[in-house]
Every structure is written in C-alpha cells, then in structure tokens.
Amino acid sequence: MPLTFAYGSNMDAQAMASRCKAARLIGRARLPGHRVALMPDGFATLVRDKGATAQGVLWDLSFGDLAALDRYEGAAYVKITQPVLRDGGSPVRALVYIGKPGLGLGRAPADYMSRIVAVAREIGLTPDYVDILRRLAGETPEPAPRFRAIKNPQIL
C-alpha cells in the first residue's frame, strides 16, 4: 500500500477518515530539505529549502484511498516521491502532494491554518515547528522566556 507524507490538512485523522476510509496512521515523520509555505490562495504546500525540515505524519493508504485523495487535492497539487524519516523508524519513500504554482483550489477557508496548527499540537509536532505554522496562520508566537543569570556564587 502506498505511504503518503501529510504536512497540512491531511494530518487531521478525523478529516482523513472522511476522505480515505482505509487510511492507517503510521505516525509522525519529517521531510528534510523542505519547508511548509502557503500558496497565493492560502493552502499549504512545501518548497525546497536545504536548511529546513518539514514535519507531519505518515499514512498508509489503499489504492482506492489514494484515488480519493487525488480527487480531494485536485489539479492544484502534484504527487512526488521523497525519502521521509519516520519518528523512531527507518527512512521510507513516500508520496508527497506539492502545490502547483498558479493552479488554485479557490480561497482557503478562514480557519484553514488555525486547524492545521491545532492538529500539529495535538499530534505532538515540535513547539518550534508549531510556531512556524502559527506564523503562517498570521499569529505572533510569544518569544521564548529568557533565562536569568545565577548571581549566587555558592550555587556555582
């Protein structure tokens, strides 16, 4: 069965259950050399960036589910195969949907990115990565707390 790396709305298990009846969640995964971005219509995509790593989840899909996901993603996305790093497992090759420039799906719903942020927190993506998603959603994450210097020489 084909493995698929999800980094946007397809990370949501409830949404995937409605799209792909036999989909099985494998777990968290990372795609080195890519970062998440927004297309002009507000939907998520990945772009190549040697210094970045996209986070998401890995799904095991039936071929029928893959056809359903193709229909859901529409003409605005193309599938590529990339090596994906599973959390706690060996690397695998997985399908990844990448947005095509200039081909949109219409405007993304107003809560599209906030739902992705909520799912990213729920599935346990790293706080730094969740902050990247929050910035894409238009939020301004709080800066990390600063540490105070220890001034008591007896502690040192």
Rank of each mutant, 00 (worst) to 15 (best):
A118K: 15
V117F: 00
Q55P: 00
V47I: 15
I116A: 06
K21Y: 09
D41W: 09
G64Y: 05
F63W: 11
L105G: 04
R35Q: 15
A44W: 05
W59N: 07
R71G: 04
R148L: 11
Y129R: 07
A15W: 09
P91C: 05
G138V: 03
V92N: 14
P153T: 05
L3G: 03
G8N: 07
E73S: 02
I123M: 03
L38E: 08
V36D: 06
S114P: 00
G64M: 08
Q154C: 07
R107A: 14
Y97M: 03
K21H: 13
D41N: 11
A13C: 09
A110W: 08
I123S: 04
V96C: 08
R30G: 06
D49T: 01
E139K: 01
G88C: 02
D87E: 15
S9H: 00
S114N: 03
G104E: 14
S18T: 13
V36N: 06
R19Y: 07
R115V: 09
D131I: 00
R71F: 01
P83E: 11
E142S: 15
Y129F: 09
R30L: 09
R93K: 14
A37I: 13
V92K: 10
D12I: 08
F5H: 07
Y77Q: 05
Q82K: 13
P101S: 15
V57Q: 03
A22K: 13
A137Q: 04
E122C: 07
G64V: 05
V57G: 01
D65G: 04
L136R: 03
Q14T: 12
V84F: 10
T81F: 00
F5S: 05
S62K: 01
K151H: 14
S18E: 13
G99T: 13
A54F: 08
M1Y: 14
E122I: 02
P32Y: 04
I26Y: 00
A76P: 00
L61K: 02
R30M: 11
G104L: 12
G102W: 08
R134T: 02
A75C: 00
I116W: 05
C20S: 14
Y72S: 10
G106M: 13
I98A: 11
L46R: 03
N10M: 11
P2A: 07
P83A: 09
R24A: 14
G64D: 12
L25D: 07
P2G: 08
L103R: 15
A6I: 06
A29D: 12
S9V: 03
R107P: 02
E122D: 13
L136Y: 07
P145D: 02
A22H: 14
A15K: 12
T140Q: 10
A149Y: 08
P153D: 09
Q14Y: 01
L25G: 11
P109V: 05
L3E: 07
Y112L: 05
D70W: 01
K100G: 08
L156G: 14
G89N: 00
G106E: 10
W59C: 04
G56L: 07
G106P: 04
M113R: 06
E122Q: 14
R134M: 12
G102M: 11
Y72C: 08
R146H: 14
L58V: 03
A94S: 12
D41K: 02
E122K: 13
M16S: 06
V119Y: 08
T81E: 06
L95N: 12
A108P: 00
